[in-house]
Computed example of a mutant assay.
Amino acid sequence: MELKYQGKTKDVYELENGDFLLKFKDDVTGENGVFDPGANTVGLSIEGAGRAGLRLTTFFYEKLNEAGIKTHLISSNIEDATMTVKPATVFGKGLEVICRFRAVGSFLRRYGAYATEGQQLDSFVEVTLKDDDRLDPPISEDALAMLDLLTKEEYAALKDATKKISQFVKDELAKKGLELYDIKLEFGRDAKTNDIILIDEISGGNMRAYKDGEYIEPLELEKIMLAK
């Protein structure tokens, strides 16, 4: 297999058959040693974070596939911390889609003059460009269309899929007494069908979850969610 991309939290390899292999790392995003799913830098390394992220991602992706929501998952190998996925193309150099149920993180930093910490939000969806040099700037529907990154029809499909997937995850967390505050998702186009599909991961590393008002760390989240 050929190394195609070294990311902050995963490395990407192309397999001989055209599929791809994601190798999950123990690095997580954050700043100054503090985890932050919205950060665009690696903030710290947590032993076991890679396998934990893969376990939870596999848990959610298998449930989403069963529910008829398209993802890039083919199979997972927890021991090797790898996931085999379908080939997909990203929009431009990549987009991140955040769904927010409460005001925390970068939303609160931007809109703190009007929002209070933890304020309830109605599945607020925002799209940001994956661009470390420009600190992952938010981008509007009109700008996405004008820059030929997404058509308005694709944006509507992306927004609808984001709300459905995020609510699905929120409901699953609620079964364990957890509340989802926000979640970051990524999408791409299936290289064979051109359908918009969910890519990357769904783990403690790309969401904020709380229990009785207390933040749950990514590794603890995986333990709670996968406990029998």
Rank of each mutant, 00 (worst) to 15 (best):
K4R: 14
Y5W: 15
Y5H: 15
Q6E: 14
G7Q: 05
K8S: 10
L15M: 14
L15D: 09
N17F: 07
G18Y: 13
G18A: 10
L22A: 09
L22V: 09
F24N: 00
F24A: 05
D27Y: 14
D27C: 14
T29S: 15
G33P: 01
G33L: 08
G33N: 10
V34E: 15
V34T: 15
P37A: 02
G38S: 10
T41Q: 14
V42L: 04
L44V: 11
I46P: 02
G53E: 02
G53C: 05
L54F: 02
K63E: 05
I69Q: 04
I69C: 12
I69E: 10
T71E: 06
H72F: 06
I74E: 12
E79F: 08
D80E: 15
T82F: 04
T82S: 12
M83G: 00
V85N: 01
K86Q: 12
P87Q: 04
T89Q: 10
V90I: 15
G92A: 08
K93H: 14
V97W: 05
V97A: 06
V97K: 00
C99T: 05
F101C: 06
R102E: 09
G105A: 05
G105C: 01
G105H: 02
S106H: 14
F107H: 07
R110S: 12
A113T: 13
E117T: 10
E117C: 13
D122S: 13
D122N: 15
V125T: 07
T128V: 15
D131W: 03
D132H: 04
D133A: 15
P137V: 07
P137E: 03
P138W: 05
I139D: 09
I139H: 04
A143R: 07
A145S: 11
M146G: 15
L149Q: 05
L149G: 08
L150N: 00
L150S: 01
L150G: 00
T151Y: 12
K152Y: 07
K152L: 12
E153W: 09
E154A: 08
Y155H: 12
A157G: 09
L158Q: 02
K159W: 04
D160H: 11
A161L: 10
A161K: 06
A161D: 11
T162E: 02
K164A: 10
I165E: 00
Q167E: 14
Q167F: 11
F168S: 00
V169K: 03
E172W: 03
E172H: 10
L173D: 00
A174C: 13
K176Y: 09
E179A: 09
K184L: 05
K184N: 04
L185V: 13
L185H: 10
G188H: 01
G188K: 00
R189E: 04
T193A: 12
I197W: 01
L198V: 08
E201A: 11
E201M: 11
I202C: 03
S203G: 07
G204M: 07
G204Q: 07
G205D: 09
K211E: 08
D212E: 14
D212S: 09
E214A: 15
I216D: 00
E217K: 10
P218L: 05
P218W: 02
L219P: 08
L219Q: 09
E220Y: 07
E222H: 06
A227V: 04
K228V: 05
